[in-house]
Simulated assay, not measured.
Amino acid sequence: MSIVNRICMFVFSVGLGIGQGFQPVSAFNYGAKKYGRVRKGFYFTLTAGEVLLGAIAVIGMFFPAQLVAVFQKDPEVVAIGEGALRVQLVALFFQPMTVCANMMFQSIWKNGRAMLLAMLRNLMYYSEKRLTVPA
């Protein structure tokens, strides 16, 4: 799971960077009461994130064993990591929505909503982790 986490956090960092690039745009336009721009920026960022992370996830689906083998050559570890990586890569399709929404809520001073969304994301993330750990 450590190997799978490293791979997915590397990809998630790309999505996080996209969301952080959106924050100043949303904050400035929300402060200027240009809510249409905030909405357009949100959908643009969401689309860009989905396309980029989705493409990376699809590519990763074709080579999960090779990606895990970069970190560990043990065949048993590669076999377990292959399945876990596929599950994690499917979850990447949902990351842009949560990251964009969280960044938007932070930048427009809706901190309670941002905190709730972040807590829900972590709860689901760690719950899914417990389900993918082999017995």
Rank of each mutant, 00 (worst) to 15 (best):
R37H: 10
K40E: 15
G41L: 06
F42T: 08
Y43Q: 12
T45N: 12
T45F: 08
A48H: 05
A48I: 15
E50W: 09
A55D: 10
I56C: 07
I59V: 13
I59E: 02
P64Q: 09
P64N: 11
P64E: 10
P64Y: 11
P64R: 09
A65Q: 09
F71P: 01
Q72W: 02
Q72S: 10
K73D: 11
P75C: 11
V78P: 00
G83H: 01
G83T: 04
G83M: 01
L85T: 12
R86M: 13
R86L: 11
R86C: 12
V87N: 03
V87G: 00
V90Q: 08
A91C: 10
L92F: 08
P96C: 07
T98A: 14
T98G: 12
V99N: 09
V99C: 09
C100Q: 01
C100N: 02
A101T: 14
N102L: 15
N102E: 15
M103F: 13
F105G: 07
K110E: 10
K110I: 04
N111W: 04
N111T: 15
G112T: 13
A114W: 00
M115I: 12
L116K: 03
N122V: 08
L123P: 00
M124N: 06
Y125K: 04
E128K: 07
R130S: 10
R130G: 12
T132P: 00
T132Q: 09
